[in-house]
């Protein structure tokens, strides 16, 4: 009964039985399609994403007037195939977003763990860093770093990684402090457990749920940050396509050639949707408290 007293658990539990699985199945299929498309982009795409064709500029997708044979999703202002560029862009965006989110998770998670467990001056320093990062608009920092270091993919991944670390750190520190006050940690100590065993066996498993949720949020945020940076010319460098830069550059042609934006935008929506749903699913799977009596 105690677990049912928690309204969030109750909601999640009741939701479990009610056809939420259907949406999760859609998300799983989408995930397979998206990852497959990203990995096998070179095999799937009919055209070279960088190949320009001045004769077939701004052609609409299949089914419209002036459709250019083969360019199913149309062509952009330089006559490049939108579908091919989108799949290559998906590939790059997916890689960037995952690398960035993982870097943030590792940095933020570790610092949060240290802050939560050690307290004292370590906590003060780490939490001041967190406050600083929150106080300064990160886009400014990213612009500065990219302008100074030059815009290479390595620097970009690094910048995207540190973009979200402070959220992980805050969550982990809060959870660790909450868990540290639980009697079962004292019970572990009286059983003879040392600090490392306790952290690994008792604290970490309780961090999985909030971290999964934060990871899915961070992934979506990074996709948006990457598109912002690319739009400003400091992200992925043209002519290389990323989903964000395609949306950014295609914006100018929205009134006359909306298809340039629509395909990559649809992929971004599908990607973030999939990640969110799968994140919820993973969180519920990891939570043994949702199992029936």
């Amino acid at each position: 009964m105690a677990s049912l007293a928690d309204p969030i658990l109750r909601r999640r539990k009741s939701r479990k039985g009610q056809g939420a699985d259907f949406i999760q199945k859609i998300a799983m299929v989408l995930a397979v399609l998206l990852v497959g498309a990203a990995i096998f982009a070179p095999l799937l795409t009919p055209f070279d994403p960088l190949q320009q064709s001045l004769l077939a500029r701004l052609r609409p997708p299949l089914g419209f007037e002036r459709y250019a044979a083969g360019h199913i999703a149309g062509t952009d202002e330089l006559g490049r195939d939108v579908l091919s560029r989108s799949l290559y862009g998906l590939r790059l965006t997916l890689a960037l977003a995952f690398a960035g989110a993982v870097i943030g998770l590792v940095i933020g998670g570790l610092l949060g763990l240290v802050a939560g467990l050690r307290r004292g001056w370590a906590e003060d320093v780490i939490m001041s860093l967190v406050d600083m990062q929150i106080a300064i608009p990160f886009t400014l920092v990213a612009l500065l770093v990219l302008a100074l270091m030059g815009s290479s993919l390595t620097v970009l991944i690094f910048v995207l990684g540190i973009a979200g670390w402070e959220q992980y750190a805050r969550i982990v520190r809060g959870e660790v402090r909450r868990i540290a006050a639980q009697p079962y940690l004292e019970a572990a100590r009286t059983a003879g457990a040392g600090p490392f065993y306790t952290a690994w066996r008792h604290v970490l498993p309780n961090l999985v749920s909030p971290l999964v949720v934060q990871f899915t949020l961070a992934l979506s945020n990074i996709v948006i940050l990457e598109s912002t940076l690319s739009f400003l010319g400091l992200g992925v460098q043209p002519p290389q396509p990323s989903l964000g830069s395609m949306v950014g550059l295609g914006r100018d042609y929205m009134p006359t050639a909306p298809w340039i934006v629509l395909t990559p935008a649809a992929l971004i929506v599908a990607l973030t949707f999939t990640v969110q749903i799968l994140g919820d699913w993973l969180r519920d799977r990891a939570d043994v408290r949702l199992r029936e009596r």
């Binding site: 009697p183 079962y184 004292e186 019970a187 059983a191 065993y197 498993p205 309780n206 408290r289």
Partner: peptide, 26 residues
């Protein structure tokens, strides 16, 4: 030691097997 609150004294994410044998394992 046996604690007051049996709800809080057991890590909710560990199986009973692991909880019951944890002191012996350690």
């Amino acid at each position: 030691m046996v604690f007051q609150d049996p709800y809080a004294a057991l890590n909710p994410r560990m199986a009973i097997r692991d909880l019951v044998t944890e002191p012996a394992y350690l």
